[in-house]
Design a protein around this nucleic acid. Structure first.
Length: 486
RNA sequence: GGCGCUAUCGUCUAACGGUUAGGACGGAGCCCUCUCAAGGCUUAAAUACGGGUUCGAUUCCCGUUAGCGCUACCA
């Protein structure tokens, strides 16, 4: 039974790429009836923030996928140190007493290219005798523990990636990376490998940015005689300009919570993320959670980066919005209504379950985001219609006189009609005929009078839901608004 | 700079040597229609470039170019 993990570091909000990594892990676990492990990789004490941790949990909870086990790397430091010591004692690591490099001046994050292979390691440290190393450590001198990459005894480090295939890299191109820092805390490489071993992770599924790190991890696993897990690296998600997604440059488009707050259905969002870098290969696009679980495999994962298609004006990918609309249409009225209510309340609408249950079917195929309820169904919930231009009341090839006649006629009909769809339709169509005008000319003034705009759900259902009293009141107001015919 | 990964319509992708290079989003147009949607139909739009291998390359190999990643006592 596979055991997979998602291991975010709480140094930023949960972003869209992380969410997708979580989802692919989860899908793999559920497909194979394995375990999904959430591990907070909070080994960088300096940069962890509570806000970030909250954002990660908020986002994951919203995705509504769940996990089976939860760990915090920061609470497992003893394990990390123990395995680091084991590497030291068995000669796979050595102490490097070189003082921490001062931060590069001018904020240049990439150090100037070094000559020869000097960047690989510091010979004086790597070759230091155990006696001297122990003595200096005893004396309290600070050091970082580095992995001693076996450049003499082996040429290539190899592993198979479930997505990218056979991978290999020369040990001559791998530097002696750090395991323990000067403050005795583990680095990511040490902590991550130690935890993956200890938690018996069978498949490491993560972003492609870790592909080259994996060679280092293979070295650690082998040195510790731990069975090597399977690896599957995922193509990265990038911005439309081809750059890496970043909060600073791309703003809300990269945050999962943006989609939640816009009124995405969690499973629609999950569906969308799955389609970024993965395909069921049979042209299906709208997939339920179970269909995703059934269809998922690493065979379907792509190798090239995928662009999240947002713009400065609109942080939401159009295809994501379309998918959300598709999923909204597949909801039962009860489900849709329950999803809509919080957005209606947030907008200040006096909506309750009963009223929303009647409105939901009218807007179900007219909204793409749950928040659209505020712009498409407002007139069902407000007492007073917001002001509208009375010119809107005038239909094609019509004039104020016609509108006045229509509204008078409508008022009379609605005063007496049975307030149900079929009866309303029959009565209003008859009214149009009586006035000798087209149905469109009859319906538009009424629609605008009761809805406050031309674009609205079908008229007869709308009238029915609104009820006689409200309809008559609004038609009365429209008549008041009407400019007096010259 | 070194090393690694990648390259099909604007975007997401299918085609694991032989297709008129398929689907979807978005765009355009038409139909349906009480408006708006939804739905139906039509349409524009792609194999980065150059060499090989092969009877035949989107597909395999090499090179070029471009993009991304790693190159931290970040993860």
């Amino acid at each position: 039974m596979p055991r997979v993990r998602f291991a975010p570091s709480p140094t930023g909000y949960l972003h869209i790429g992380s969410a997708r990594t979580f989802i692919f892990n989860w899908l793999y676990a559920r497909h194979h009836r394995g375990a999904m492990i959430l591990r907070i990789d909070d080994t960088d004490v300096e940069r962890n923030t509570q806000a970030s941790l909250d954002s990660i949990f908020d986002g994951l909870k919203w995705l509504d996928l769940g996990w089976d086990e939860l760990y915090h790397a920061s609470q497992r430091v003893d394990l990390h140190r123990r395995l680091a010591q084991e590497l030291l004692h068995r000669g796979f690591a050595y102490r490097d007493f070189t003082p921490a490099a001062a931060e590069a001046e001018g904020g240049n994050s990439h150090p100037a290219p070094q000559s020869e292979g000097a960047w690989l390691f510091n010979p004086g440290m790597r070759e230091m005798s155990a006696q001297e190393s122990d003595r200096r450590a005893q004396a309290g001198e600070l050091f970082v523990l580095r992995f001693r990459v076996p450049r003499d005894s082996r040429g290539e480090v190899e592993f198979n990636d479930l997505v990218y295939g056979a991978q290999s890299k020369s040990t001559a191109d791998i530097e002696d990376f750090a395991l323990l820092r000067g403050n005795d805390l583990p680095t990511y490489h040490m902590a991550s490998c130690a935890d993956d071993m200890d938690l018996r992770i069978s498949h490491i599924v993560r972003g492609q940015d870790h592909l080259t790190n994996t060679f280092k991890h293979v070295l650690i696993f082998e040195a510790l005689n731990a069975p090597l897990p399977e690896f599957a690296h995922l193509p990265l998600l990038i911005a439309p300009d081809g750059s890496k997604l970043s909060k600073r440059r791309h703003g809300p488009a990269v945050s999962v919570l943006t989609y939640r707050d816009a009124g995405f259905l969690p499973h629609a969002y999950v569906n969308f993320l799955c389609l970024l870098g993965w395909s069921p290969k049979d042209d299906r696009e709208v997939l339920s959670r179970q269909e995703l679980i059934d269809a998922f495999s690493f065979e379907g994962v792509n190798r090239s980066n995928a662009t999240v298609n947002f713009t400065e004006d609109d942080p939401l990918d159009p295809k994501a919005v379309w998918l959300n609309a598709e999923h909204i249409r597949r909801l039962s009225v009860e489900e849709l209504s329950a999803g809509l209510l919080p957005f209606a309340w947030a907008a200040g609408f006096r909506a309750d379950e009963a009223s929303m249950l009647r409105v939901a079917p009218l807007i179900q195929e007219r909204i793409r985001l749950l928040r659209d309820v505020t712009s498409t169904a407002d007139f069902f919930f407000v007492h007073q219609l917001p002001p509208y231009d009375s010119a809107e009341l005038i239909p094609q090839k019509g004039d104020v006189v016609m509108v006045a006649a229509v509204l008078d006629q409508a008022r009379e009909i609605l005063s007496n009609a049975d307030f149900h769809h079929d009866a309303l339709e029959a009565a209003l169509r008859a009214g149009a005929q009586k006035l000798g005008i087209k149905t469109g000319q009859m319906f538009q003034p009424i629609r605008v009078a009761v809805c406050g705009r031309k674009a609205a759900p079908p008229l007869f259902q709308t009238l029915e839901v609104l009820g006689r009293e409200t309809c008559l009141q609004r038609i009365g107001q429209a008549i008041e608004k009407l400019p007096k015919a010259a």
